[in-house]
C-alpha cells in the first residue's frame, strides 16, 4: 500500500502549484476509501462524512508543506482512522445514544454472500479492533504499517487480526442455516 504512483506524485505537485484538476484527481482517488474506512469504524454515515471531510481539509491546509515524495494515502488514512476511533469512543460515553444498526446502500444487490453478515459481525468489535481490520482488509496495509499508524505494538495488531478473522468465521458459520 505504501508505494507511490507517478500519477499521484504529479497530482500532489500540481495541487501544490494551484491546479484544481490535480486536487480533484487526488480527491477522487482517495475519498471513497477514506469515507468507507471511517464508516466501517464509526457506523454512522454523517460522522464518517465529517471525518473524511476534515481529513481532506487538513490535507489542503498543509498541502504546501507536504513532501510530494511521500505517499498521500497512509498520511490521510492515519488521520481518518484515528479520528474515527476517537469519535466512536466519544459516542460510547454518551448515554442517550445507542449504537445504530449498520446501514448499507445497495448491499443487497452486491451478490456477495459474505457482505452483510461480515459487516454485521464487524459491528460487534470495539472501534479499535474494527480499525485494525479495516486498515488490513479494506486499505491493505501490512501489520507493520498498521502498528505505526495506530501506535500499537506489532504483536497486538497481529493478534487482533488473527482473532478478528477467527471470530468473523465463527460467527458467520454459527449463523448459517
Amino acid at each position: 500500500m505504501a508505494g507511490l504512483r507517478d500519477d499521484e506524485r504529479a497530482w500532489i505537485r500540481g495541487a501544490q502549484a494551484g491546479s484544481l484538476p490535480d486536487l480533484e484527481a487526488l480527491f477522487r482517488d482517495h475519498w471513497t476509501r477514506a469515507y468507507r474506512a471511517a464508516y466501517l469504524v464509526v457506523h454512522d454515515a454523517a460522522a464518517a462524512e465529517d471525518i473524511a471531510q476534515e481529513a481532506f481539509l487538513a490535507a489542503i491546509r498543509t498541502l504546501d508543506r507536504f513532501d510530494s515524495r511521500r505517499p498521500f494515502g497512509p498520511w490521510l488514512h492515519r488521520i481518518v482512522v484515528n479520528r474515527a476511533i476517537d469519535w466512536a469512543r466519544a459516542r460510547s460515553f454518551r448515554a442517550e445514544v445507542g449504537e445504530p444498526a449498520l446501514e448499507l446502500a445497495g448491499e443487497a444487490g452486491s451478490g456477495l454472500p459474505y457482505s452483510k453478515p461480515v459487516l454485521a459481525a464487524l459491528a460487534e468489535f470495539s472501534p479499535e479492533h474494527r480499525a485494525v481490520i479495516v486498515l488490513r482488509h479494506l486499505l491493505e496495509y501490512t501489520p507493520r504499517e498498521i502498528s505505526r499508524m495506530l501506535d500499537l505494538p506489532r504483536g497486538t495488531v497481529n493478534s487482533r487480526l488473527r482473532r478478528g478473522l477467527d471470530e468473523l468465521a465463527g460467527r458467520l458459520e454459527g449463523g448459517r442455516p
Binding site: 484544481l20 486536487l23 480533484e24 480527491f27 475519498w31 471513497t32 469515507y35 468507507r36 464508516y39 466501517l40 454515515a45 464518517a48 462524512e49 473524511a52 471531510q53 481532506f56 481539509l57 489542503i60 446501514e103 448499507l104 446502500a105 445497495g106 448491499e107 452486491s110 456477495l112 459474505y114 457482505s115 461480515v118 459487516l119 481490520i133 479495516v134 482488509h137 479494506l138 491493505e140 478473522l165 468473523l168
Partner: peptide, 26 residues
C-alpha cells in the same frame, strides 16, 4: 472473503457525501 465483503459495502448516501465533501474541499 473479508476484503471482498468490505469492498462491496457502500455506505448510505456515499455519492451525495462525496459531492458535498468535494464542494467544501474545493
Amino acid at each position: 472473503d473479508v476484503r471482498r465483503a468490505l469492498l462491496a459495502a457502500a455506505p448510505p448516501g456515499e455519492a451525495a457525501a462525496q459531492r458535498r465533501s468535494w464542494q467544501l474541499a474545493r
